[in-house]
């Protein structure tokens, strides 16, 4: 028998277990991604069909490097928040859910860091 009040039992047990932080960060990253995505997408479109030297030169301007790195960081962060909600919605087995969440986060961090370091290497040479 538990002596905890129903309120005490319920506290901290929302679906995400972390209050409104997840919700807020998802919105803030979404707002940041609007200009970042448009810039990066059309910047990449301009590189299509151009010689390698031109593509590399695009990664020389500090502003472009900043936009690409910020885009990648924010986009992968936003993706990990979104995929977390999808997994929490559809995977009901507790062990599978935790495994899927950890695996997803690891994959996102690995892919994200690889992409960011690729941009930095293109920018600063090897």
């Amino acid at each position: 028998m538990s002596l905890m009040t129903p309120l005490k039992k319920a506290r901290g047990l929302g679906s995400a277990k972390d209050g409104t932080h997840h919700w807020w960060v998802q919105r803030v990253t979404a707002i940041a991604l609007v200009p970042l995505t448009l810039w990066v997408a059309f910047c990449v479109a301009c590189m299509v069909g151009e010689p390698y030297a031109f593509v590399l030169s695009e990664f020389q301007s500090p502003f472009n490097i900043a936009m690409f790195v910020l885009f990648l960081f924010t986009a992968f962060y936003h993706a990990s928040l979104g995929l977390q909600v999808v997994i929490e919605d559809y995977v009901h087995h507790e062990g599978l859910k935790i495994g899927a969440l950890i695996g997803m986060k690891f994959a996102i961090v690995l892919t994200g860091f690889t992409a960011i370091f690729a941009v930095l290497r293109a920018a600063f040479g090897s």
Partner: peptide, 10 residues
């Protein structure tokens, strides 16, 4: 794919 493409540039 994005990570692959950026990696290829690098």
């Amino acid at each position: 794919l994005v990570a692959y493409w950026l990696g290829a540039i690098a």
